[in-house]
């Protein structure tokens, strides 16, 4: 367990990693990555039980699946800084011959990744399969997932949401990054999601609302609450309200930084707002 300050330092360093990765190749998705820096940090530093000696089958380990693969910069940073692969490798993000592909893949055998994601809407189904295998193997560890809110516009999610409730997949904790923004604008303008809470409840999921999705303490409480609700016959979802671009003032409150890299000057400003804590790669 880390102290609050240690965890906050970890988050700040992850933000720097996200910004520097995306800036270096002038491509990638900083907005959603920054919005989920706290979630990934808490999940990997405080909540999940895993080994960094990576084995695909993840036997007797908690597993995490990232469905909205475009926020790979935050995933890569947290995996590296949790010990899955050398932090220096973040230098190779989106470059030729790299294990850190634009979207996460198993193809280059990057430790910590168990499925390719990028084409949206597929992660929950995969997670349900992994959860079913755990039950068949009498493995009582849990499956965690993250999904974009805009991603819920993909129909496959609703097939999976219906299946998980109908088949009592109760070793699964899904989290929705509920930032209400997507690449073309506000979700309400692109395709309104309506009430996600009502929708998940109508599908018979156990719903936890997390209003402070950029607070490490609040995230930890929500995840622990979710864990306590597993094994009770219902899948659990956390609707985690986050701020896209969190931690960089000019990236917050807009969808503009969903898939755009900062300029040299913008990077400088953003990094000043997030001073180095654990050492840059």
């Amino acid at each position: 367990m880390s102290t609050t300050q240690q965890l906050q330092d970890f988050v700040t360093q992850v933000r720097r990693d996200i910004l520097r990765q995306v800036h270096q190749v002038n491509s990638g998705h900083p907005g959603g990555s920054l919005g989920c820096a706290e979630f990934f940090s808490v999940l990997y530093q405080e909540v999940m039980d895993y080994s960094t000696d990576f084995k695909m089958n993840g036997e007797n380990e908690d597993l995490f699946f990232l469905s909205n693969g475009h926020i790979s910069p935050v995933f890569y940073s947290v995996l590296a800084r949790s010990g899955f692969f050398p932090v220096d490798e973040l230098n190779t993000f989106r470059k030729i011959d790299s294990r850190l592909q634009g979207h996460p893949t198993t193809h280059e055998a990057l430790p910590g990744i168990r499925i390719a994601s990028g084409s949206l809407g597929q992660g929950l189904s995969v997670a349900i399969g992994a959860a079913a295998a755990k039950k068949l193997n009498n493995d009582d560890k849990l499956i965690y997932t993250l999904h974009g809110d805009g991603e819920l516009q993909e129909g496959q999610n609703w097939e999976a949401i219906m299946y998980a409730a109908g088949n009592k997949v109760d070793n699964l904790i899904a989290t929705v990054d509920y930032n209400k923004k997507q690449i073309d604008g506000a979700t309400d303008d692109v395709l309104p999601l309506g009430s996600l809470k009502a929708k998940f409840e109508a599908f018979d999921w156990d719903v936890i609302e997390l209003k402070e999705g950029n607070s490490c303490d609040a995230i930890k409480s929500a995840l622990n609450e979710a864990k306590s609700r597993t094994g009770k016959g219902k899948p659990v979802v956390i609707l985690m309200e986050t701020e896209m671009g969190n931690g960089v003032d000019f990236m917050m409150g807009t969808h503009a930084w969903h898939g755009k890299a900062p300029s040299d000057e913008q990077l400088k400003t953003a990094l000043e707002q997030n001073p180095e804590t654990l050492g840059d790669y």
Partner: peptide
């Protein structure tokens, strides 16, 4: 679509 995804996930557990 869900079936193919679930199948892919099951392989992870062997």
């Amino acid at each position: 679509a869900n079936m193919i995804g679930i199948a892919a996930g099951m392989t992870i557990g062997g």
